[in-house]
């Protein structure tokens, strides 16, 4: 490693915490809108995963590539996504980046390095690898790409193929696994048989990093190390963080299958509360100051939601219904 890795500072921690807080408040709003029947599709929350997710998004640079997954609201906001566009996409506003053509977590701005996931897990891993290959062919150096996945996604063929292909070409890819104990309802005991998902790193010949997913400090430092290693030419880096998804798979899921022992175990803590406690314990800010941040964020999120609810829905008669960029290739037998 050519450069020393800087330790995480108070300022880094507070900045990341503020994004986590915004993410949590925004997701609580989304859950409320869902219960009120105002969301067009499903709602999938990242509660309990904000520390890990924010640590990825906030430590990437402009020009890097980020392909977040389902529970990465915090990482998305940290990378440059906005409360406004999140609400627009969930509420189906015509003004959102996906224009009603796709929804909820399937959003992005690929031209800005912020890729729009497809639902098929693992698919973004080779795509980010390919993006990094293209950057290398253009002669760009020092760029990294990160993508996130869960314990369930590590069982897919695409995870294997993508990570292996990236390793063969020593691409600066960071794959972040949120080991949140469940893939929808499937527990880890039915998902994999190795003792730790991190064991897979050795098999692929990639860097290995373990994080405590409930600790913002540990997540920030671990991701900093992994991103640094990739940026300095160390090839792909696999990060595994143990944590617990604190909500159902989606807001339609009552999470009745949650093993209560997991909730009481080390992974069951709420990373946001632990981060808050760290801030007050260190004497960086008082509990009142933290509470004021939360009120301020709630007010911003509520105002944005009210604004988006007044925005136009997509108009089917205005859509060009073009899946191909060339108008002359348009299918002439489609419904009209």
């Amino acid at each position: 490693m050519s450069k020393k890795i800087a330790p995480v500072t108070q300022s880094d921690f507070i900045k990341a915490y503020r994004v986590m807080l915004t993410s949590r408040v925004l997701e609580e709003k989304l859950a409320g809108l869902y219960r009120a029947g105002m969301i067009k599709g499903g709602v999938f929350l990242g509660r309990g995963q904000e520390a890990l997710s924010v640590s990825v998004g906030i430590q990437l640079r402009r020009g890097d590539i980020f392909a977040p997954l389902i529970r990465d609201q915090a990482g998305r906001l940290a990378f440059g996504d906005t409360v406004l566009d999140t609400l627009r996409t969930y509420l189906g506003s015509q003004l959102g980046s996906m224009r009603g053509r796709d929804g909820n977590i399937h959003r992005g701005r690929p031209r800005e390095g912020y890729y729009a996931m497809i639902s098929h897990l693992g698919a973004m891993i080779p795509s980010v690898a390919g993006a990094l290959l293209a950057r290398r062919l253009k002669g760009e150096q020092g760029v990294v790409g990160a993508t996130c996945i869960g314990d369930g996604g590590t069982s897919t063929g695409a995870f294997h193929e993508g990570l292996n292909a990236a390793a063969v070409d020593k691409l600066p890819l960071i794959v972040v696994v949120a080991n949140n104990q469940y893939a929808y309802s499937t527990p880890n005991s039915r998902q994999y048989a190795c003792s730790d998902l991190l064991d897979k790193a050795a098999g692929y010949g990639v860097g290995a990093h373990k994080a405590d997913g409930t600790s913002l400090m540990d997540c920030l430092q671990t991701l900093r190390n992994a991103i640094h290693a990739a940026r300095e030419g160390g090839g792909p880096q696999l990060v595994v963080a143990d944590l617990l998804r604190l909500v159902g798979h989606g807001e339609h899921d009552d999470f009745a299958y949650l093993d209560p022992k997991l909730k009481k175990s080390a992974v069951g803590s709420d990373c946001l509360l632990l981060a808050e406690k760290h801030i007050t314990d260190q004497g960086w800010h008082t509990a009142d100051e933290v509470a004021a941040w939360k009120r301020e964020t709630e007010s911003e999120v509520n105002a944005t939601a009210d604004r988006v609810r007044r925005e136009p829905s997509p108009d089917p008669s205005e859509d060009d219904w073009a899946a191909l960029s060339r108008p002359e290739y348009r299918e002439q037998y489609a419904a009209s």
Binding site: A129, A134, V168
Partner: peptide
Amino acid sequence: PGRVLDAPLSEDAIVGMAIGAAIEGARP
């Protein structure tokens, strides 16, 4: 040199990598 690359036996990754490269302006 460097522009005709052997891929692992991974059709999903081959196409997936082409997609990411295309987003970044390449013509794979």
